[in-house]
């Protein structure tokens, strides 16, 4: 739903669901996903419906994704970092076997 109108200044590479995308170093994870043409980032917990970032300011919790293995992070509140591994989510948190 978006296109970037700027030539990249400083780019980082992140992996999204196994695919490598480029993003501006100053972007949030949510902005990076939107800029790469991704809209739905998860399936909702209760009804399994597709959901996408809605507010981009930390309010709506629609942009929850897994970042570097940590589930349910707000993509709009986390700046991208080079090498970050991001995955979309389906439903509720899965339990980590063995814990910490």
């Amino acid at each position: 739903m978006f296109r970037s109108i700027e030539s990249p200044k400083s780019r980082v590479r992140v992996i999204v669901d196994g695919r490598e995308i480029e993003a501006d170093v100053a972007a949030s994870v949510a902005a990076a996903l939107l800029g790469a043409g991704m809209t739905a980032v998860r399936r909702s917990v209760v009804g399994g419906e597709p959901r996408a970032p809605y507010c981009l300011m930390g309010i709506c919790f629609e942009c929850l994704v897994t970042i570097d293995g940590v589930q349910n992070r707000q993509a709009c509140m986390v700046p991208v970092r080079d090498g970050m591994v991001i995955s979309s989510q389906r439903g509720a948190r899965t339990m980590e076997v063995g814990g910490q």
Partner: peptide
Amino acid sequence: PGVMSIGAAQIALKSAGLLP
């Protein structure tokens, strides 16, 4: 998906130079 608040769209513009 494809629906967003206008504030969010504006944040995308201000912070990441994204246009619809």
